[in-house]
Simulated assay, not measured.
Amino acid sequence: MGRAKKVVLAYSGGVDTSVCIPYLQQEWGVEEVITLAADLGQGDELEPVREKALKSGAVESLVMNVQESFIRDYAFPAIQANALYENRYPLGTALARPLIAKILVEAAEKYGADAIAHGCTGKGNDQVRFDVSVAALNPNLKILAPAREWGMSREETIAYGERFGIPSPVKKSSPYSIDKNLLGRSIEAGMLEDPTFEPPEEIYEMTNAIAQTPDTPEYLEITFTQGIPTSVNGEVLNPVALVEKLNQIVGNHGIGRIDMIENRLVGIKSREIYESPAMVVLIQAHRDLESLTLTADVTQYKRGIEDTYTKLVYNGLWYSPLKTALDAFIQKTQERVSGTVRLKLFKGNATIVGRSSENSLYTPDLATYGAEDQFDHKAAEGFIYVWGLPTRIWAKGNQ
């Protein structure tokens, strides 16, 4: 199947993406496969991954550290949008895909490749995110998805790889499918496919079990500048260090676990477990700071924008015209969202206990019930008369 001469393959070092290398060459007549592994802070040693690609038949094996761009250009805008898919999932995996697509396209253009390939199956969301993002960035590139078409079981895939010198996994691999980056972990498959099955403690890595958490509360202060988190407990940190520090502090208290039945784009319900300590508290704190600094109508209108934004990102439309337009609205709202939020971390809960901002719209002498109250109570009567007039007319008409 001579679909392409030179291909850039999104590469993780796992069974599927490794087998994609000989498969593209043997079955689809690809002449050169260049692999690209993205370092998103998954913590794996990427040099063995780079070498494995070369041993599996790649002509070039690229490893790119894109951690800072991942946080600054993808995670931070999602925090400004309070992006929680189905009001729970902070898009840790979804946010990585448009960035990976971007560096794949850049590599294809640099090396003169005519196609991009990935190892996604036909059931998940990632295939949509990769395919649509690549098409948006360079519609002239072909997109190859061998695992979507080869029809091999996992055992058959491993056997196919062994024929071309790709070693089978040394140990019996975990029954779970795990995706990890700086923003957290997603865990699925195995026994978790039974929605009644309680996740075993062993699947978690970033968050403590409640029984293992500290017995005293810890206070945490997060400072935002125009909707972007800039410091933790008064210490200014770069984007990557800030997320790493929060993951550690928050995860230590068992905060950031999500167990949900999620509606995938392809129409399947999927049981997903996530650990995302930093993102959970950052969105919680950011939303609270907005309540202090934005007017009621902007805050309330923004909720609908956030829901649309979140669905666009989840559904692979990061590089779409609507997402770009929503970005402009969100950025405008963030001009006033600067200040500090104080949280109390204890036994799996992050509770907001205080907030302050130079742009605060909270007015003590209007809000108070004390002697210094400046609110004109007499004005309320006329306001209520006008406000309630349509209701009164309607009630009379119904008598």
Score class of each variant (00 low, 15 high):
3 R>D: 07
7 V>C: 13
13 G>K: 06
15 V>C: 05
16 D>A: 05
18 S>N: 04
23 Y>L: 07
24 L>K: 12
49 V>N: 01
56 S>P: 01
60 E>C: 09
64 M>W: 04
64 M>T: 03
71 I>W: 00
76 F>T: 04
80 Q>V: 01
84 L>M: 10
87 N>M: 09
94 A>Q: 07
108 A>N: 09
115 A>R: 07
125 N>L: 01
130 F>T: 00
130 F>R: 00
153 S>N: 09
159 A>C: 08
175 P>K: 15
176 Y>G: 03
182 L>A: 05
183 L>Q: 02
184 G>S: 12
186 S>Y: 02
194 D>T: 05
194 D>Y: 06
204 Y>E: 07
216 T>N: 10
228 I>T: 12
229 P>T: 12
234 G>A: 11
236 V>S: 14
237 L>C: 13
248 Q>V: 10
250 V>I: 14
251 G>M: 02
258 I>A: 13
260 M>K: 14
261 I>A: 15
263 N>C: 09
266 V>L: 15
272 E>N: 13
276 S>W: 00
280 V>A: 14
282 L>S: 08
285 A>M: 03
286 H>R: 02
306 E>V: 01
310 T>W: 11
314 Y>C: 01
316 G>D: 00
319 Y>N: 00
323 K>T: 08
325 A>Q: 14
325 A>L: 11
326 L>P: 01
331 Q>M: 04
341 V>D: 05
355 R>H: 14
360 S>F: 14
372 E>Y: 06
375 F>M: 09
378 K>R: 13
385 Y>P: 03
386 V>I: 11
388 G>E: 12
392 R>G: 06
397 G>W: 15
